[in-house]
Amino acid sequence: MRPLLTPDRPEAAPFQGPPLSLISEEGGGISLFYGHPDLFALSSLMAAWRLAQGEAVLFLDGNNRFDPYPLVRLAKERGHNPEAFLSALFVSRAFTCHQMGSLVFQQLQSGLSTHQARLVILADPLATFYDENVPYIEAKNLLMHLLTALQQLAPGRIFVVLAPYPKTSSGRRVFFLSHLKSAAKRIFRVHREAETRRTFSISEEKPGTGTWQGVFQYRPMPASRFA
């Protein structure tokens, strides 16, 4: 088993505030962030938050969403070693829904044990289920099994699922997002203010512990990606 890392800069200012405060509750479970297509920017901050604490993070990538550059910039800004961050974040990419299924059913448990990760980020897992080459019923059944498996693995850990709005051309598969919502313990809708294009608003739809409700402004970093 891989030992937990120790923070390389314990004196560095911790990552805190929203959206981290939204997912840091005790007990864990699935937190769904859905909405604006740029919401994947949140994943860097979430990963950095645990990586700075010397923990490993698992990143299950459903649509080539992993971008290491914002993470490196975040590490540098807070005085952390970017290489240490990148060494402790473990990525697995799935290109079909069956691969995504195998990843969750067969690899996730061992990944969690090996890397002792508490935070798991699933980026755009539904993208693989929108593929019209896979019959609707087959995709739906597989998704339901996958969500059950995630629910079983999530307690005591933080499972963050990031899902953009489905394209309207996805037909009845647009309802896959509803299935995802049903499986989530907490649901947050992410949208971008039109007049201030660099800020996201996140509002909670399905409160969990009730510790936070409402809307706040999140100014993502780095600015260049959002200008």
Partner: peptide
Amino acid sequence: REPEGFKSA
């Protein structure tokens, strides 16, 4: 269905 193994970033 063979997924990619976990690899560090």
